[in-house]
Nucleic acid binder design. Structure first.
Lengths: 124, 124
DNA sequence: TGTACACTTGAACAACTGTTCACATATCTT
DNA sequence: AAGATATGTGAACAGTTGTTCAAGTGTACA
């Protein structure tokens, strides 16, 4: 499983310039748990193999071995990555006999992918 | 610098179920370089510390030591993370004397953050 | 000039990651 | 039933990550 480190104590001894701004942001800051889950989700998207899988499933519902064939990697590697994506509810699947058909779990994933694409394509 | 592994040979010996679908997706697949850059960007968002920095800068332009104060981590740690975000053009800064004021580099970052938030808040 | 401050950087470390390999499970076919 | 196929899983490995620490810039102010 993807793991991610975190911390947010309230004791802090670093000097500051403008405490008003810092406090205003602190009030708005999302709960530690939310930040953690969000980081885990982005980390899942932060690997080319998983990103290709996401992209592929964005276009077509596919089974494990077609994904493996498409990306030229072992079905084992695909299965490991799909488990990570499944646990984070980024993909879902349904079984037809021995074949597992995977697809994206919700429409946000596609949006995130596209916004990210705009960012990287704009910057070079 | 954030690094990310990648590969996309055209030789592949995995069995397949539906080659038509796989080929259709392959035609649409983004270039290796694009996927790689996108993965790097998402990986940068895949860490709670950097995510908190992004969130903070989404609300306010801030200097390094105010970010450190706000998140209760060393200015060194913040500076290291800001360099990663800077290199990926996720944040920019301007200097006023010895103080460096950081802010988000473009509007896509906020969009990505919000879409991600919708995903994680919807799923539990 | 010297001291303090704001920030940056390089090296080093433990912790985490993605892949491979070997094996396990489950389902279909003959 | 046996064998082939599709997928899942645990262990192990090299490679990568984020933090800390120590030392470095450059700017401000007395």
């Amino acid at each position: 499983m993807l793991k991610v480190k975190s911390r947010m104590d309230d004791v802090c001894e670093v000097h500051f310039i403008d405490e008003r701004k810092a406090k205003a942001v602190k009030r708005l800051m999302k709960p530690e748990r939310t930040i953690y889950n969000l980081a885990e989700t982005f980390a899942a998207l932060g690997d080319p193999t998983r990103l290709k899988i996401i992209f592929a499933l964005f276009k077509e519902e596919l089974c494990v071995c077609d994904i493996a064939h498409l990306l030229c990697i072992s079905t084992s590697a695909v299965s490991h990555q799909l488990r990570i994506l499944r646990n984070l509810r980024l993909v879902k699947y349904h079984k037809a006999g021995r074949i597992a058909y995977y697809s994206l779990d919700d429409e946000h994933i596609g949006q995130i992918f596209n916004e990210g694409l705009k960012h990287v394509e704009e910057k070079r």
